[in-house]
Simulated scan of single mutants.
Amino acid sequence: MLERHAQEREQAEKAYKEELQERNQLWDERLKSFQKEVVEHAQRLKQQHVAALQHFKEKMSSKTPIKAQWSRELLKQRRIQSYLGKQGKYLEAQEVKQSADRMEQAELQAAIAAFQSDVIGKEQTIRVKQQTEMDILLQRAARTREEIRKSRTLDLQRCHQRHKNVMRELAAIQKQEVFRFDQLMQKKVQNPYTGIGFGGQRLSQSPSSRAHFNAVDYSTDDACGSGGEDSSMKG
């Protein structure tokens, strides 16, 4: 019986370890699958960001100013240049033209610089927005990963608790079996006339039965004794 009890406990422990290994494997696969989905989603989002940024740069490049909104001073210089040319004052007109050209170039460079600064600002805004989207994705993934971790811990705790309940119930059953066996052995010691009947059932002799057997024994002894006396007398 004790050997059977040990085997039952061993089988329960083995079943628990197998279930624990199986559940850990399932949770590992679930976490691995989730991580794969996060990576794929992040890669797709990154590709979308790169494409959107490239499209923005191409669009802005086509809008690079080739002329500026000329200042009133520059327009005035151009009118003077034209007037001097019409008056035949070509030398003076040439000097005004050179001054106006330098002014025009400066204003064009300023317009380009302002445009590029605006592009940089818009590009930075796009990058910040894209980074925010990526951060939201990663934060959501982190929360889900933490939920998976908590669910896994809770599931394994429940599995462990079920095992403890099984072992406690098994111990109680085995303890009861040992108790009944001890009681049976005590009865056998206290009642030495207990025998084994058909089918493995124990048969106990009643006091009347034992008295009957004793009476038979005494009668047999008396008969044997009487026979001896008759023989001696005859002799």
Results as ranks from 00 to 15, higher is better:
24 N>V: 06
24 N>C: 14
24 N>L: 15
25 Q>W: 10
25 Q>F: 08
25 Q>H: 13
25 Q>E: 15
26 L>Y: 14
26 L>N: 15
27 W>E: 10
27 W>L: 10
27 W>Q: 05
27 W>D: 08
27 W>K: 08
28 D>L: 11
28 D>Q: 13
28 D>C: 06
28 D>T: 08
28 D>G: 01
29 E>D: 13
29 E>H: 10
29 E>V: 07
30 R>Y: 04
30 R>Q: 14
30 R>K: 14
30 R>F: 04
30 R>W: 05
31 L>D: 00
31 L>N: 04
31 L>V: 00
32 K>E: 05
32 K>W: 01
32 K>S: 10
32 K>G: 01
33 S>C: 05
33 S>H: 13
33 S>T: 14
33 S>N: 14
33 S>V: 06
34 F>N: 01
34 F>I: 03
34 F>R: 09
34 F>H: 11
35 Q>I: 03
35 Q>F: 00
35 Q>V: 03
36 K>I: 07
36 K>R: 12
36 K>M: 00
36 K>D: 00
37 E>H: 04
37 E>Q: 12
37 E>M: 07
37 E>K: 11
38 V>S: 00
38 V>R: 07
38 V>Y: 01
38 V>A: 04
38 V>G: 01
40 E>S: 02
40 E>G: 01
40 E>A: 00
40 E>R: 00
40 E>C: 00
40 E>L: 02
40 E>W: 06
41 H>C: 02
41 H>L: 11
41 H>S: 13
41 H>K: 15
42 A>K: 11
42 A>L: 13
43 Q>N: 07
43 Q>K: 10
43 Q>A: 03
43 Q>D: 08
44 R>C: 05
44 R>S: 07
44 R>K: 14
44 R>M: 00
45 L>T: 02
45 L>D: 08
45 L>M: 08
46 K>L: 00
46 K>S: 03
47 Q>M: 03
47 Q>H: 07
47 Q>E: 01
47 Q>N: 05
47 Q>A: 09
47 Q>S: 00
48 Q>V: 03
48 Q>W: 10
48 Q>N: 10
48 Q>L: 05
49 H>E: 08
49 H>F: 09
49 H>L: 06
49 H>Q: 13
49 H>S: 11
50 V>G: 02
52 A>L: 11
52 A>T: 05
52 A>D: 09
53 L>G: 03
53 L>N: 02
53 L>H: 09
54 Q>Y: 01
54 Q>H: 12
54 Q>I: 11
54 Q>T: 14
54 Q>E: 15
54 Q>V: 11
55 H>K: 14
55 H>L: 13
55 H>F: 06
55 H>C: 07
55 H>Y: 10
56 F>T: 10
56 F>M: 07
56 F>S: 01
57 K>V: 13
57 K>G: 06
57 K>T: 10
57 K>R: 15
57 K>W: 05
57 K>S: 12
58 E>G: 12
58 E>K: 13
58 E>W: 08
